[in-house]
């Protein structure tokens, strides 16, 4: 009863403070699938891809903005700007890029850009309304990088949804992400195949607008 009342009150409040468009940041560790997800959403609703996806770490080294996306779901329209961030890391070793066939110089240049990208992503925390924390379901969720990202969003009062990505892979364990962060909404998806992406839109509508 009381919770129902609270809910409708919150809905009412939402109508007043609802922004026309939310600025939705994609945060997460490197290679979790942030750009793949941004591309899928962009392709579905704007008809074009925007970013380069790669198995090479730190492919996204600048903040990438996709503006004026209007998604239609069962519950109406969802308007947003997506801000695809470089992945957060505590280390960047240029030698790891050389393993992907880059020259010494290319690898060093990429490493320098990657460090700047991490700083840029952290600075952007002040400019987003809500965040999707994109994690790779095949990896151990309880890393310091994940804890730091989520801790910073909590401390700043930025609403978030945790996206447990790559559920198309047989070794995916989205439930271990839910266990690691029980205080947050976790939506398992595959950005690659599009599985469950509708659920994600609905969750964004319900929790982040």
């Amino acid at each position: 009863m009381l919770s129902e009342l609270k809910k409708s009150l919150r809905k009412l409040l939402k109508i007043f403070k609802r922004k026309k468009q939310i600025q939705l940041g994609f945060y997460g560790p490197v290679n979790a699938g942030k750009t793949t997800l941004a591309n899928r959403i962009s392709l579905d609703w704007l008809g074009k891809e925007v970013g380069t996806v790669s198995e090479v770490p730190h492919e996204t080294r600048h903040v990438q903005k996709i503006e004026n996306i209007v998604v239609t779901t069962n519950n109406g329209e969802l308007r947003m700007n997506i801000v695809d961030m470089p992945g957060i890391a505590t280390q960047v070793d240029y030698k790891s890029f050389k393993a992907f066939g880059m020259s010494e110089e290319e690898a060093k240049a990429r490493a320098r850009e990657a460090t700047k990208g991490v700083i840029e992503a952290i600075k952007w925390l002040d400019n987003v309304d809500a965040v999707l924390v994109v994690l790779d379901s095949t990896q151990d969720p309880y890393t310091q990088v994940n804890v730091t990202i989520i801790g910073n969003l909590e401390a700043r009062g930025i609403p978030m949804i945790i996206v447990a990505n790559k559920i198309d892979l047989p070794e995916a364990q989205p439930e271990s992400i839910a266990n690691a962060f029980p205080q947050h909404v976790v939506v398992p998806i595959s950005a690659a195949t599009g599985e469950n992406i509708e659920k994600l839109y609905e969750a964004i509508q319900e929790h982040l607008t």
């Binding site: 505590t90 700047k116 700083i119 952290i122 801790g151 910073n152």
Partner: peptide, 15 residues
């Protein structure tokens, strides 16, 4: 958490 973010930022500058 904010100090952790600052630590990561400072680390990136020093790399």
């Amino acid at each position: 958490p904010q100090e952790e973010a600052e630590l990561i930022e400072a680390t990136m500058r020093e790399i």
